[in-house]
Design a protein around this nucleic acid. Structure first.
Length: 215
DNA sequence: AACTCGGGGCA
DNA sequence: TGCCCAGAGTT
């Protein structure tokens, strides 16, 4: 397991690789961000951005999403996959926003995660990106990279990965950390063919060293 | 803990 | 054409 100093080294090196790692979803306000992140589950940000361009023109408020039949909303987002569930969840989510939060998006992770279609990862992204709350969103990239590098244990659950990161990274850097790890995982430390030979972290990465030895 | 939901992108 | 990608909800 890497200690705090080693993790700091990793994050600094990744920061050099991706100097402007930030949320790739297009949004103008917290409400749009919530919708975009809910839509982004199990699909790429690029694909979501294609849909949200028109979607955000058509729907500006939670009320707008409830004024159309479910089938119409499903049709508006059908190109992203899992659209039936996502459309249902968005209407439920909008209903909750109106009835429980005065039409506004709540700021805390604890409130966000209660919303339909919002899980731990989405709640963390919205809290940190929209409201600047300290949070580390653990998606598949963050989980994989954390395990390969040795930041956490291989058998850790998603929640345990998140807790370990929060424990070992200073709170002020939680938000930027999750973006750094996501970029690192998506573009360099890929699931299939991680670019270990050109990785600046090879000397510290247990999985990288193992892979290089096995070649 | 395992299963289901569903498309686009790419070889 | 078939494999790969990416979370939430339910049981």
């Amino acid at each position: 397991m890497l200690n705090k100093k080693q993790i700091r080294y990793c994050l600094d090196e990744i920061a050099k690789m991706f100097p402007n790692a930030e949320c790739e979803l297009e949004h103008a306000n917290p409400f749009e961000l919530v919708i975009a992140v809910v839509l982004s589950a199990q699909c790429t940000d690029a694909l979501v951005n294609k849909v949200t361009k028109d979607l955000f023109k058509k729907y500006q408020t939670p009320e707008d999403y409830l004024q159309v039949p479910l089938e119409e909303l499903q049709n508006d987002i059908k190109s992203i996959g899992l659209f039936r569930n996502k459309a249902k969840n968005i209407q439920k989510l909008c209903k909750s926003l109106i009835e429980e939060y005065g039409g506004e998006v709540p700021h805390s992770k604890e409130e966000l995660i209660k919303l339909a279609g919002v899980g731990r990862k989405t709640a963390n992204v919205v809290a940190s990106v929209a409201f600047g709350e300290p949070a580390i969103a653990v998606d598949t990239h963050v989980e994989r990279v954390s395990k390969r590098l040795g930041i956490c244990k291989w058998k850790d659950s998603v929640l345990e990965v998140e807790e370990t990161l929060m424990k070992k990274v200073p709170k002020e850097e939680w938000s930027v950390t999750h973006h750094r790890l996501i970029f690192f995982g998506r573009y360099h430390c890929k699931a299939k063919n991680p670019n270990c030979p050109e990785c600046p972290l090879l000397d510290i990465c247990r999985e990288g060293q193992k892979r290089m030895k096995d070649r």
